[in-house]
Amino acid sequence: MKRSAPNGFTLTEALLTLLCAGVCAMILTSVMSASQTLLSREPAIENGLGILQLRYRTALSSSVSCQSGNLTMTRNHEVFEIRFSRGRVVQTPGYEIVLEPVKEGRFVCEAGQVWLETETGRIQIR
């Protein structure tokens, strides 16, 4: 004779349900932990992507010059300026944020090369 729980489940079914709920909770916890790690903002990765964007934009530009610490580029017959604004490196027109947070810095053109000088060091852009 099988023993039944008050709601009609057998004891074995009730224990299996409890075990499945525990396994599901463990899987959900590990998935949430992994997604938090993937979605967290890693400053080193963001800075690397910002530098790659700057290099890509200057590589596609027909002319690049530095004026007053800002970078001026001509691409597809349009003039773009990349400058420091409120702790960010932005491209105008349109105020597109390329790199943040950057306290202060400037662009320097030397012998056909473009350098980004910030509080953390000097990086070659082109």
Rank of each mutant, 00 (worst) to 15 (best):
S63T: 15
M26G: 08
L60T: 13
L99H: 12
S63E: 06
N76M: 12
S35W: 15
S68T: 04
L60H: 14
S30Y: 08
V23E: 05
I82T: 05
C24W: 12
S63Y: 11
G69N: 00
R86T: 04
V90M: 01
P93V: 10
I45E: 06
I45Q: 05
F84K: 02
R88D: 02
S30F: 13
A34C: 11
F84T: 03
G50P: 11
S68F: 02
R86Y: 04
S33T: 10
G105D: 09
P93F: 09
G87C: 09
I97L: 05
L54Y: 07
E78D: 05
S68H: 07
S65F: 00
F84Y: 12
M32A: 13
I51V: 10
L49T: 10
E78I: 00
V79W: 05
C66N: 02
F80C: 07
Q36T: 10
S30C: 11
C24I: 07
M26I: 11
R86P: 03
S33W: 06
N76I: 14
I45P: 00
L38I: 15
R83N: 13
I45Y: 07
Q36G: 14
E81P: 07
S61E: 13
V31C: 14
L54A: 03
S61Y: 05
K103G: 09
P43W: 06
R55K: 02
T74D: 01
S85Q: 15
L39H: 13
G94R: 03
R106G: 13
T92G: 05
V102E: 12
G105E: 09
R57H: 08
Q36F: 02
I97M: 14
K103P: 09
E81N: 03
I45R: 04
C66W: 00
E100M: 12
M73V: 15
K103W: 13
R41M: 11
Y56I: 10
G94V: 09
S40V: 10
T29P: 07
S61T: 07
R55S: 01
T58A: 04
G50S: 02
L99P: 08
A25D: 01
H77R: 08
C66A: 12
A34W: 11
E42Q: 09
I45W: 08
Q53K: 13
